[in-house]
Design a protein around this nucleic acid. Structure first.
Lengths: 175, 175
DNA sequence: CTGGTCGGTTCAATCAATGAACCAAGGGTG
DNA sequence: CACCCTTGGTTCATTGATTGAACCGACCAG
């Protein structure tokens, strides 16, 4: 039970996946990483997660190759967590999960995802209905939907109000 | 915190979804329900889950409208848990999650999903590459893959070795 | 009456999450 | 230099969830 979860008796890829990303908060961290969040403090204020848990999740995700820790300035030394290919590969799953959440429990659309360029809203698992192809994460444009609070408290949520592509680092407007 | 998880500060359909199905074991229960498991004892032996947790999850999933408890015999009174439309709607998400798990952490294929009739293996989120359409759960044929233990201990795993459609109730061969 | 099955509930022990406090390496300002 | 600030953590006591074993009750079969 390397990871604090073990679905050891399960012969199943779903169980295997959940061992990696099934813990509380983990998928939300990955979601934020796809949205362009990279820094410890940004995850912290945006998720409202306890510091100890965040540190543990970032470390675990890094160990699993879903995030990559890298130094973005030498002095003072500062690291950021950047989502890897393996993490980006979770985008269709998260898209599909979010879609299910909204269709069955949400009312209004909170975020709208479009195919950059063609502008068409994505289908259920991240494909472009107009082009008929899967849209890779960097070509997904995220814009705020009608249900989203137009004046959120934390700077990360505020930065996420601006239309932006997935993976593109957020700009919190701070230093 | 109605559900033991609250991602209350999150304005996000993914967070909303995870409040419902994000707890430990929950998605595996839904997976089993899609595979045709319906009875308390079958979930129990197949998942290796503590009884108290299983009871809690079944109740929560029923309350959320993902499973439906219904009496299948009067005497002695016996209930089964059948997956609803809302639960079936999780199929593409689970498919996509399992696919990710196998591609990034698995070696061999454990279960293969085909489009009934046409026989084509499903794509990443449950569509048929040959037909170009999404394959509804009842038309998905599940067959064991090369990585699956050919002689598992519990009767549910044994029943799942037979090719069967999703949702079709399993037959454990018991009374 | 006895034993067995099914579908649970109860309970003590363990494990994980939470939130507040603390810490340390650097700046930046005066 | 003194002081405070930012970033990215760690530590720790409290609370909450999970676990596994034991128990329970309705029913049936012999």
């Amino acid at each position: 039970m390397a990871l604090g979860k073990d679905y050891a008796t399960q012969e199943c890829s779903i169980a295997r996946a959940l061992e990696v990303v099934g813990e509380r908060w983990t998928l939300l961290v990955v979601r934020d990483a796809l949205y362009g969040v990279r820094r410890y403090n940004d995850f912290l204020v945006h998720l409202g997660i306890p510091r100890a848990v965040l540190a543990a999740r970032l470390q675990a995700l890094t160990a699993e190759g879903i995030l990559e820790k890298r130094r973005y300035q030498q002095s003072p030394p500062r690291d950021e967590y950047v989502v890897t290919e393996r993490g980006i590969a979770l985008w269709p799953t998260l898209r599909s999960l979010g879609r299910w959440g909204r269709e069955h429990f949400g009312e209004e659309q909170l975020r709208i995802f479009r195919h950059t360029g063609c502008g068409t809203e994505l289908g259920a698992y991240g494909e472009c209905p107009a082009c008929g192809t899967f849209v890779p994460a960097p070509d997904v444009l995220m814009v705020p939907g009608p249900g989203l609070d137009p004046d959120p408290a934390d700077p990360v949520s505020r930065a996420l109000l601006r239309p932006k592509r997935l993976l593109e680092p957020i700009d919190t407007g701070q230093v």
